[in-house]
């Protein structure tokens, strides 16, 4: 865990999951698994969040909700799809109201398989997400410099 430079805050949204993954996400926060010891806090406000945990697949009605939450999160941000429904639609893929995995709507960085995903797997997914978060931040730090260089060249 040496590369954890910041304690990420997570936001959780239940797409159209069966609750199984949701209660496992919540179980991560409780004394048995206790992710709060890493400084991970579940927040209700997308503007405070670094990592977006989505359980369940997207359907006709929640597309806008998922998109809105994603757009409201500040950069850099990471999306973790929890459970097989969020990954591909899972057992409900053939249902008439299911559009498929979360990646049909927003870009997903980490996929956590399982039905329901175990808390250990969820924690592992979040930790993987931290790596992605660090990469994204590094890319962001570089970008302004690169942009400035290009501008200088153009002017010259």
């Amino acid at each position: 865990m040496s590369y954890v430079t910041k304690s990420p805050w997570i936001i959780h949204y239940d797409g159209s999951s069966c609750n199984g993954c949701d209660i496992e996400v919540l179980a991560c926060l409780t004394p048995m698994y206790d992710v709060e010891r890493f400084g991970i806090i579940n927040t209700g406000n997308p503007k405070h969040a670094d990592i977006f945990l989505v359980t369940g697949s997207v359907n006709e009605q929640n597309i806008t909700v998922v998109k809105l939450i994603y757009e409201q999160m500040p950069e850099p941000k990471v999306v973790v799809a929890i459970g097989i429904c969020a990954t591909s639609g899972g057992i409900f893929k053939e249902c008439y109201n299911i559009m498929g995995g979360i990646d049909t709507v927003i870009p997903v960085d980490v996929y956590v398989p399982g039905c329901a995903a175990r808390p250990e797997a969820i924690i592992d997914g979040v930790v993987k997400g931290l790596g992605v978060l660090a990469e994204k931040r590094a890319a962001m730090d570089q970008k302004p410099a690169v942009a400035a260089e290009v501008k200088e060249k153009e002017e010259a």
């Binding site: 239940d14 797409g15 159209s16 999951s17 369940g56 697949s57 359907n59 009605q61 929640n62 909700v65 057992i91 409900f92 053939e94 249902c95 008439y96 109201n97 299911i98």
Partner: peptide, 23 residues
């Protein structure tokens, strides 16, 4: 409501009665 509506009762046409337990 309707944010989680999947329509899984309709899967009855695609899964046999023994498989339907999992759904």
């Amino acid at each position: 409501i309707g944010f989680i509506h999947r329509g899984l009762e309709k899967l009855v046409e695609k899964k046999e009665y023994t498989e339907l337990v999992y759904v």
